[in-house]
Design a protein around this nucleic acid. Structure first.
Length: 424
DNA sequence: TCTGGGGTCCTAGGACCC
DNA sequence: TCTGGGGTCCTAGGACCC
């Protein structure tokens, strides 16, 4: 009998902000998206105010003020570090762990000699004690039901943060109270489609004819349905698969009009994306660039476009990729627009060393001058901080840089931002 | 003034080939 | 009048996730 536990951090980003600032206990906290645009995380106290996920920050100003909400720009360096602390704590409890996202992990508890609910309570307490991050645990015979159980654990405090689907005396009633759009794998579009057929809760969806589900929602939808019936279709994926693409994109802090600034921003995004694939020992075969104006401004001329260039040889060399990305940008850039956003995607990723050699271009050997330069650059940036060394093409002023007015210190990863403890 | 960013998977349809 | 059929590869678009 399969048994999955889903451990999910409560209001993860907000909890991270609270770890090093105990005075925030009990105070509503929100964390804003990149560019301080939208609300992306809220503490329980903030949720109670009805602020709403994804709401533009500027529409919440009054509410923030009235309720003394602590507002933070997102600090992914901090969240990433606390996440890995949580995950390594979880890894001590089972070898069968799938890190599913920055704040969630599935554990395979099948064959556990101890009572799984007891064990999960123990896990929950330990993570809380060691990392300061509160978590909830949902347990079920499939990943999808573990998700349902997790949400139940979070919603109903009487469960003490741990809920086992199998311990539910009336699972049909529970699924009937569970909105179908909250089921893992059913998003807004499918929920709207299902509603047109009168299907609004998880129990109704589970009991639909499976052929119909497959036809309307493809195999993914069918798997979701079968999982709700208790039939495992999704396995624990312990091995982290190599990524297939890497994206870097951002909205600008203010509109950009010149190709010159666009080229600088492009250089920065290429640097970011290539750094990421390099750290995973991957090389790219292609690069896509896209640009976009601000679609929220009515009456302003709009333009969006993208284009792709194949790289003659698979590479993870920043300058080499930028050389091919710049003409792509030049090809889609049009003057006379106020641009809001630029992005880069590296695709056709493969393991370094597997790369196909080009018949047309001389291929730099592994460990050649270009590779050594990149290794040295990564090492310097790792030691002295991101962007200590960067391409001149990224520009110095970066007037288009995103807004990040309220970022908390990187308490755990930057020496000059460590928390200070006052004694006495 | 101010509206996020980074991923994956599936399917349909076209091009091309034999 | 009848106007093959199956396979592969690629891309675009649509759905989902956090």
């Amino acid at each position: 009998m399969s048994c999955f536990a889903l451990v999910d951090c409560n209001s993860f980003y907000a909890s991270c902000e609270r770890v090093f600032v105990p005075s925030l206990t009990g105070r509503p906290i929100v964390v804003l998206s990149n560019n301080d645009g939208c609300v992306v995380a809220q503490s329980a106290e903030a949720k109670a105010l009805g602020i709403g996920m994804g709401k533009p920050a500027f529409q919440c100003r009054a509410l923030f003020k009235r309720y003394n909400v602590a507002v933070f720009s997102s600090n992914y360096t901090l969240y990433g570090d606390l996440s890995s602390r949580v995950m390594s704590t979880l890894a001590r409890f089972t070898p069968n762990l799938e890190v599913y996202s920055i704040d969630e992990a599935f554990l395979d508890l099948a064959g556990m000699p101890r009572d799984v609910v007891d064990y999960s309570r123990h896990i929950r307490e330990t993570v809380g004690k060691w990392t300061g991050i509160p978590v909830s645990v949902g347990i079920g015979p499939t990943k999808t039901l573990a998700k349902v159980a997790n949400r139940t654990a979070k919603k109903d405090a009487s469960h003490g943060g741990v809920f086992h689907f199998a311990s539910c005396p009336d699972p049909d009633a529970l699924l009937e109270r569970f909105p179908v759009e909250d089921v893992w794998g059913i998003g807004r579009r499918y929920a709207a489609m299902l509603a047109r057929y009168g299907v609004v809760n998880a129990r109704q969806f589970r009991d639909l004819p499976r052929d119909w589900v497959k036809r309307k929602m493809t195999v993914g939808g069918l798997h979701t349905q079968l999982e709700l019936r208790g039939l495992p279709c999704l396995a624990l994926e312990e091995i982290v698969q190599a990524r297939k693409s890497a994206v870097s994109s951002r909205s600008f802090g203010r509109p950009v009009v010149s190709l010159e600034d666009m080229r600088e921003a492009l250089a920065m995004h290429v640097s970011r994306a290539v750094e990421r694939i390099r750290s995973e020992r991957l090389v790219a075969n292609g690069v896509t660039v896209w640009v976009q104006t601000n679609t929220f401004i009515e009456g302003e001329p709009q333009y969006a476009n993208s284009a792709f260039a194949a790289l003659p040889v698979a590479t993870a060399h920043t300058g080499g990729i930028l050389k091919h990305a710049l003409p792509v940008l030049a090809g889609i850039f049009r003057t006379g627009f106020r641009y809001k956003k630029i992005g880069v995607m590296l695709s056709g990723l493969e393991r370094q060393g597997n790369r196909q050699l080009s018949l047309l271009e001389p291929t730099p050997a592994d460990g050649g001058k270009g590779d050594r330069l990149m290794i040295a650059m990564d090492a310097i940036n790792a030691r002295f901080g991101r962007d200590t060394l960067r391409l001149a093409a990224c520009g110095l002023e970066q007037p288009w840089k995103m807004r990040q007015a309220k970022r908390s210190p990187r308490y755990t990863t930057a020496w000059d931002e460590l928390p200070t403890v006052k004694a006495g």
